Computed example of a mutant assay.
Amino acid sequence: MSIYDYTVKDTEGNDVSLSDYEGNVLLIVNSATECGFTPQYNELADIYDEFKNDGFVILDFPCNQFGNQAPGTGEEIKKACRLKFLVEYPIFEKINVNGSDEDPLFTYLKSEKSFEGFDSDHELAGVIEDVVSKIDPDYMNNSDIKWNFTKFLVDREGNVVERFEPTKDLGIVKEKIRELL
């Protein structure tokens, strides 16, 4: 399987083949509009604006599995992101990223890049580790998505090359994107 073999739903319920993005560098993120990491929307919008003409696309998948922090429909979330955060990149239908009804795309992404830990330098690292450890005491030993704003970087050939937890400095993410472009 390749990332280009997956089909996802847009906020109108239409099928979108990820092969439509073949040849681009992709940053795939699970997001939430009411999370402590939500300010990352602004930084992601800036990164997208800087690199969108160079073959870079962010694919945003809202997810309500972490603290019910993505309320509303996919279309409502998309409208809020467009208005509040000026997000222009594609926002897809709300999905689950873990569990028996997780989206197959995220099953694939997690199989390609597992969890390696939170960035302890981030101001929310201790908080997120505390919350996640109460939900899953064995969280360090599985590939599940731990929280909102986990990101996967995919190169132009469709290879999943990096996984960034929500605590990873977006300046580092930006540099990794620049390297692939």
Rank of each mutant, 00 (worst) to 15 (best):
K151Y: 14
Y6G: 00
D20Y: 06
V173N: 00
P137D: 08
V25W: 04
S114M: 12
D60L: 07
D20K: 13
T33E: 07
V131F: 06
N24Y: 06
R156A: 14
T167I: 03
S100M: 14
F66L: 02
A70E: 09
S120R: 15
D119P: 08
I135S: 12
T7P: 03
E165P: 02
C35F: 02
I128N: 04
I135H: 14
Y6A: 00
G126S: 14
P39N: 10
L59W: 06
I58E: 03
E75H: 02
D5M: 12
D138V: 12
K110R: 15
E112W: 00
G72R: 11
S114E: 10
G158E: 02
L44T: 05
A45S: 06
Y139K: 10
G23R: 12
D60E: 09
T11Y: 05
N159K: 05
V161W: 06
F51E: 10
L86H: 09
L86W: 12
S31H: 04
R163D: 09
N141V: 11
S120G: 11
K113A: 08
A32R: 11
L170C: 01
T107G: 13
H122M: 01
F149P: 01
G36K: 08
Y108V: 05
E179Q: 13
I172R: 05
L86E: 05
M1N: 07
G13K: 13
D119W: 12
E50M: 09
R178C: 07
E162H: 10
G171W: 10
V160P: 15
E162M: 07
F37I: 09
H122G: 06
G67C: 11
K78Q: 14
S111L: 14
Q65G: 03
T150D: 02
F61C: 03
